[in-house]
């Protein structure tokens, strides 16, 4: 069963995503709303990972060898300036979209397996991921015109 592999992947990618949000928070302290919201979202991603943990353990016993290397891109260093902020938020958007679709994949399997516990976790975490994406999109839309048209440096 490949679900175990996928759960592992999801678990790792949540860790990567939370780190990335924290990194952006740290790198953009001059944008207090970005700093603050990224921290709040990071701690919610930690909570997602925590909810998933027991399920990863449960399926982990049945883990098969990976069909192929599944991994998420790591977030590298934050950038500076208006365009830098925009790029960093876009990177977060990409990472967050990856966990979003991974939750969807896992959710489908949970339904197939009639795993009620996993289904509940997926539904709560999908909502939370939608919130991340919505915030990122809102903030990106706000920043884009200024960064691309008038920002210097």
């Amino acid at each position: 069963m490949h679900l175990a592999t996928y759960l592992g992947l999801l678990h790792t990618s949540l860790g990567t995503l939370a780190d990335a949000f924290r990194e952006v928070a740290k790198g953009h302290g001059d944008e207090p709303d970005v700093e603050r919201t990224c921290e709040v979202l990071a701690s919610r991603i930690d909570a997602q990972a925590e909810k998933l943990s027991p399920i990863v353990d449960r399926y982990g016993e049945h883990r098969e060898t990976e069909p192929e290397r599944l991994h998420t891109a790591e977030f590298e260093q934050t950038r500076t300036g208006g365009v830098g902020l925009l790029r960093d938020l876009q990177d977060l958007y990409a990472l967050s979209s990856f966990t979003d679709i991974t939750w969807t994949v896992v959710g489908q399997a949970a339904q197939g397996l009639r795993d009620k516990e996993l289904m509940d976790v997926v539904s709560a975490c999908e909502q939370d991921t939608a919130r991340q994406l919505a915030w990122l999109k809102t903030r990106i839309k706000q920043s884009a015109p200024q960064a691309l048209i008038v920002a210097k440096g």
């Binding site: 919201t37 979202l41 919130r131 919505a134 915030w135 999109k137 809102t138």
Partner: peptide
């Protein structure tokens, strides 16, 4: 908006 983050509702 989402009251926690300020994300706009589409």
């Amino acid at each position: 908006h989402d009251l926690l983050t300020g994300a706009s509702t589409t």
